[in-house]
Simulated assay, not measured.
Amino acid sequence: MKLNILKGGLALLCFVLSNLVFGQKMTDEERAVRALDSAFWNTYNICEVDAMNKYFTDDIEFYHDKGGKMKGIDELVTTTKRNLCSDDNFRLRREAVEGTVKYFPMQSDGKIYGAILSGQHVFYILQKGKSPRLDGLARFTHLWLLTESGWKMSRVISYDHGPAPYVNKRVEVKLSKKELAEHVGSYMAPNAGRCTVTQSNGLLALEIGDKTYELHPESRNLFFQTNRDLTFEFVDNKMIVRENGDVVEEASRSK
C-alpha cells in the first residue's frame, strides 16, 4: 500500500514538473506570432500607417467596445490615418501589460492554421511639450492566421476599456509639525471655493466641503496624493494644484 502511494505521488510530481517545463517552452509558431504582434504595435506607436498593411489580411475586422467596428483593410487604414495619426502634436503609445499576454494555437486535423494572442494593454497620451500620461487600460484578442504569405492578423477585438490604475512613484518624506504648520490655514480657490488645510498624523489634510483628502509630503513645500497624479505646491501664500503636471487650480491663502 505504501509503495503504491509513493509511486502515485512520484508520478504526480513528474507530471506537474513536466507540465511546468513544457509550459515554459515556446514553439517556433508562438515565437513568430509574438514577434510580429510586437512589430505591428511598434508601427502603431509611431503612426507608420502604411507599414501596418503588411500585418493584416485584406478582410481584417476590428471590433472596439467604444468606437464600433471596421471591416476591410482600406477602412481600417483610412480611419487610423484620420483619427489616430492626423495630429502631429497628439499620439497614443500602446504597451502590453507584462505577464498578461497569452498564446493559444488554433489547429485543424492536427495542423496549426492560426493563433490567438490575448491579454491586457495600457495606453499613454503623448502631447508635445508634456510628459507621457497613462490614460487607459483594456483587454485585447488578436486572431493571427497562417496564410500563403505568412502570418497575418485577421481579427482584432479591443474591449473592457477603462481608466488605468494609477501607480504612485513619488517618495514621501517626513516633516516636523513646525514645517507642516507653515501651510495650515484657509485658502480660496476659483473652482473649489473655500479650502481648509490642517495637520493630521504627520500629513496635511485638505478639507473641501464635506470631503477630506490626505496630502503626503514629497518636500517641504510639495505634497501629493497616492491614488491620483495630483500635487499641491505651497508657494507665495498660494496652493498650486497640478494634475498630470498641468495646473488645474490656484488657491490664495486667506488673511
Results as ranks from 00 to 15, higher is better:
1 M>A: 11
3 L>H: 09
5 I>Q: 10
5 I>W: 02
7 K>W: 13
8 G>L: 13
10 L>F: 06
11 A>C: 07
12 L>Q: 01
12 L>G: 02
13 L>E: 06
13 L>D: 04
13 L>P: 03
14 C>Y: 12
16 V>C: 01
20 L>V: 12
20 L>Y: 13
24 Q>W: 09
28 D>I: 11
30 E>N: 05
31 R>A: 15
34 R>W: 06
34 R>Y: 12
35 A>L: 15
36 L>C: 14
38 S>V: 09
38 S>Y: 08
39 A>S: 12
40 F>I: 15
41 W>A: 04
42 N>K: 15
51 A>G: 15
53 N>V: 14
55 Y>V: 14
56 F>M: 13
58 D>H: 09
59 D>T: 10
61 E>H: 13
61 E>C: 13
62 F>W: 15
63 Y>T: 06
65 D>G: 00
65 D>C: 00
66 K>F: 14
67 G>F: 12
69 K>A: 09
70 M>W: 12
71 K>S: 13
71 K>C: 11
72 G>D: 14
76 L>P: 11
79 T>W: 13
81 K>D: 09
82 R>Y: 14
84 L>Q: 04
88 D>W: 03
91 R>G: 03
94 R>C: 01
98 E>V: 01
100 T>C: 01
106 M>E: 13
109 D>E: 08
110 G>H: 01
110 G>W: 05
111 K>Q: 07
112 I>A: 04
116 I>R: 05
117 L>K: 03
118 S>E: 10
118 S>W: 10
122 V>H: 02
124 Y>S: 08
126 L>G: 03
129 G>Y: 05
130 K>S: 14
132 P>H: 00
134 L>I: 04
136 G>K: 15
137 L>S: 01
137 L>T: 00
138 A>G: 10
141 T>R: 01
143 L>W: 00
145 L>R: 13
145 L>W: 10
145 L>M: 14
147 T>A: 11
150 G>I: 12
151 W>I: 06
151 W>P: 11
155 R>H: 08
155 R>P: 00
159 Y>C: 03
162 G>R: 00
171 V>M: 04
171 V>D: 07
172 E>L: 00
176 S>D: 04
180 L>N: 05
182 E>Q: 13
182 E>V: 09
182 E>W: 08
186 S>W: 02
187 Y>S: 00
187 Y>V: 00
188 M>S: 15
190 P>D: 03
190 P>G: 03
196 T>N: 09
197 V>L: 10
200 S>F: 08
202 G>T: 01
202 G>K: 00
204 L>E: 08
206 L>Y: 02
208 I>K: 07
208 I>T: 07
209 G>W: 09
209 G>Y: 07
213 Y>T: 11
213 Y>H: 09
214 E>P: 15
219 S>E: 08
220 R>M: 13
223 F>Q: 02
226 T>C: 06
226 T>F: 05
227 N>W: 09
229 D>W: 03
229 D>M: 03
230 L>S: 06
232 F>Q: 02
233 E>F: 04
234 F>G: 04
240 I>P: 00
241 V>Q: 02
244 N>W: 08
244 N>C: 04
245 G>N: 03
246 D>N: 10
247 V>E: 04
249 E>V: 04
249 E>F: 05
250 E>G: 06
250 E>H: 01
252 S>Q: 15
254 S>F: 10
254 S>N: 14
